[in-house]
Design a protein around this nucleic acid. Structure first.
Lengths: 216, 216
DNA sequence: TCCCGGGTGTAACAGTGTTACAGAAGGCTG
DNA sequence: CAGCCTTCTGTAACACTGTTACACCCGGGA
């Protein structure tokens, strides 16, 4: 009934491929070509094995992806917060969350498709709750603040992920803004510059945190 | 070389299907079953026609999606801003942008994949630029503000789109927070409540706008 | 020796996007 | 009228996808 561990003490014939090897090869394929580039036959060919062996070890394409997602979710169990002021600590949490998620850009969509988003973000949510409580917010107000921050961070990462994957923006923002007649030349020029995502994220998140943590 | 309009004055044989009909049927299919549910054969069957006719009229699956995306992009040419204070006007723009984008949840991902995000958001970006200039921001600072707001709004909508499509969150946020021992009972209870996206968006966007438009 | 079960392979199913090719049907020119 | 040309449709195939029914091999236990 449970999963079969080939690493235990009774491999009768030294299997040509292990569950672990399948998962690793799948990860490699996904990182190279995206989730759509993962096909069971490619996977089998990569491992020098027939397709059915893949199915024997992981059951399914869906089950395979489930497993990878589970591993990722377990991978971000504890997020550290650094800094002294509440604003700084919340900001550091957000930066850390983005850093971790950006390491697995392909899987973030899969997590949602599997309905694991709450489970995935529970640790970070817990950490956020702690910091925001420490900042003095309580009850509904605190909950709204936590959620606002989570939506902001996850949303930013989703936008990033999308723009990363579209290699050439055909009428690029640069062309569009250079052709634009404008009163504020510096502004147009700035908008014609590629986005510095790190900086933009840090700035906008800090602005949001400041505003959310301030009494209004 | 250009596109052929069947509506012009020379239809020799009253075609069994028009380009327009294909686009409409595709839109219907996508709205019902998502982009992945759009197959050329389904489309042909829906219209009572062989697959090749579809290809003749729209060329390609990719070209078909391109066309739908183009239509959507043209659909949000002008966004109205209402209100008196800069903050209120920017906020109203954000709310309007979200409202329009939520009407086409399936296409928003396609727009990015096609690298049309800059073109798509140029109108809203222009409107934002006008409001933010009116608020007194200039140059690089203004550009960063515009981008921060766009990332926030688009990101929020992407998160919404994801959570909308995952029907059952298996360990739901509710269960998780009800099982959580917590010092702030009200907070845990609030986090166990489903998200009110409208309210959350309005609140968080307003917080962000306030902070971005304030001198720091 | 026989059997059982873990692990693998062959070959097929239905479904996908796409296309080479054969037509049908009307308008135009000879 | 014949012939051709453009527009539009259909048949059938290609390569690819996920998935599975089935046969097979081979080592260990009885």
């Amino acid at each position: 009934m449970g999963t079969v561990t080939q690493e235990s003490a009774k491999p009768p014939r030294a299997p040509a491929v292990t569950r672990r090897a399948v998962l690793d090869a799948a990860t490699r394929l996904i990182e190279q070509q995206g989730v759509a580039g993962l096909s069971m036959r490619k996977l089998a060919a990569e491992l020098g094995v027939a397709v059915t062996s893949i199915y024997w070890h992981v059951g399914n394409r869906e089950a395979l992806l489930d497993e990878l997602v589970q591993e990722m979710v377990h991978g971000l169990d504890t997020l550290p917060a650094s800094g002294t002021t509440p604003t700084a600590r919340v900001l550091s949490l957000a930066l850390e969350l983005r850093r971790v998620l950006r390491a697995h850009p392909h899987l973030i969509g899969l997590v949602n498709e599997r309905g694991l988003t709450p489970a995935m973000f529970l640790p970070s949510q817990r950490a956020l709750v702690a910091e925001i409580s420490a900042a003095g917010l309580r009850g509904t107000r605190a909950a709204e603040t936590v959620r606002a921050l989570q939506y902001h961070v996850i949303g930013f990462i989703l936008v990033e992920r999308h723009t990363d994957r579209s290699p050439e923006q055909h009428p690029s923002a640069e062309e569009l803004w250079l052709a634009e007649p404008s009163a504020d030349g510096d502004l147009a020029e700035a908008l014609a510059t590629p986005v510095d995502a790190d900086r933009l994220f840090a700035r906008s998140t800090e602005a949001l945190v400041r505003s959310l943590l301030a009494d209004q």
